[in-house]
Design a binder for these strands. Structure first.
Lengths: 249, 249
DNA sequence: CCTCAGTTTGAATCTAAGA
DNA sequence: CTCTTAGATTCAAACTGAG
């Protein structure tokens, strides 16, 4: 298995990728959510929006959270359009989103040419309860394919609900996804194929891909997170070479 | 506890309901999904769409499944607008939907004046796996309130994920919801308050409301299902009188 | 290696005060 | 007025560390 990590803006890097060069796009774009007013959504940092006021941790901020609603949809469409071009026929796209951006995400996916196939839920057992409300304990995975599903070429059965808490020990990103969830999801890509994640962050998608025998192509804008991802991906390869066992963080 | 069951078209009956007369609207409208083309969606009956050809059960068909996409959204907006009028300030609406109609449902809810508050998931563990795909094992509950949430008047904490299989034994409606899920959801209505369900079907929402100490107002167009619902609701009241314990179906 | 008690915190959400 | 910042809320999972 091998990986490539591009440093730079997702749209710019994607437009340089070859057509039909990846088998699946699995990514967690900035949600651009978190606030009732436009000012609250666009004028605050991700850290200010998404970390509890009483949290003691000191995780780094991440960029891309300052678009208004209209331009968020437009930008996501452009991004998914370039991803579509880079993906082979009958390849899949899996896009994380929260409840607020779910309709925008399904619109963008379809506008970009993908055939929308469904919505899966990621349930986080540890989430803040709210008086007088239903808890927001799920994030969502909007998914689609480039053209028809080809079940014979890649006969995999995946769940529609994933339950896992965010990593706590060794967590390095505010919105870091659990590797065990990503390991299930990367199986939508055929073994030996290539997974693309235009928003690599700390690299959980890549780690999962390598562990499951898929190649990985990532893009990350922030140097801080690109360094982190590089380290985690490198360690994964080394571990692979020496056939070490045992769980990572 | 008491219930009222209106027989007739939901929109017509709702427009006759008094303003601010109910505390929560909890309903499962016809999804109008289940086909990729407009022809597939509108040309087949609900029974043909939602049951396998070899299913042994003999569930009655239900109407309201023949709208095209645009008019489905329009109709749902009208319905939620009338429901909004009938609901007290800070009352809640909980609307079931499948993945295909989710964006239309959040649009309709907001167009009708409700403040959209979130999306909860209902997970059905027993659902058909699909080769090359993520399983569609979740339906969704889009919810909102009429104006601000009033957590002090009604301090309840509800989950964001509900897990239960569709009733199999004793199931009388194609899309019948598990009573245990509905019993959790009706708690969004203050105790002693009134729950409205414009698509009563076999009456699971009403049964749950009565069991949890809420009044119930239902509307059902089909005589077949209205009779069934009437019987189940009546039995619930009788059981209540004699204080019988133990599970139903 | 287990149990048990104690601690921490969440892609939240809202109010009130300050600038 | 608007925009920003600080503070309060609260359940349960997941982790810590002692015995």
């Amino acid at each position: 298995m091998a990986y490539t990590l591009h440093r730079g803006d997702a749209l710019t890097v994607l437009s340089g990728l070859g057509s039909d060069s990846v088998d699946a796009v699995i990514t967690d774009p900035p949600y651009n959510s978190g606030g009732r007013t436009s000012g609250e959504r666009t004028g605050r940092t991700a850290r200010a929006k998404y970390t509890s006021a009483d949290a003691a941790h000191d995780l780094s901020n991440f960029p891309g959270e300052n678009r208004d609603q209209r331009s968020y949809g437009y930008w996501l469409t452009l991004l998914l359009t370039e991803s579509y071009r880079a993906t082979v026929e009958s390849g899949a796209a899996l896009v994380f989103t929260d409840w607020r951006q779910l309709p925008t995400t399904t619109d963008a996916l379809q506008a970009a040419g993908w055939t929308w196939r469904g919505i899966a839920s990621w349930h986080k057992p540890v989430s803040r309860p709210q008086k007088g409300r239903l808890k927001q304990s799920c994030e969502f995975i909007v998914w689609g394919t480039k053209g028809p599903v080809d079940p014979d070429r890649h006969p995999v059965y995946l769940p529609g609900l994933y339950t896992a808490s965010q990593p706590r020990k060794g967590r390095v990103h505010i919105t870091q996804k659990p590797v065990e969830v990503m390991q299930e999801l990367v199986r939508i890509c055929p073994e030996g194929g290539t997974v693309l994640d235009p928003f690599t962050g700390s690299g959980s998608t890549g780690v999962a891909a390598l562990r499951e025998g898929r190649h990985f192509v990532g893009v990350e804008l922030s140097d801080h997170y690109a360094d982190l991802a590089e380290r985690r991906l490198q360690r994964e390869l080394t571990r692979d070479d020496f056939e070490l066992a045992g769980p990572e963080e």
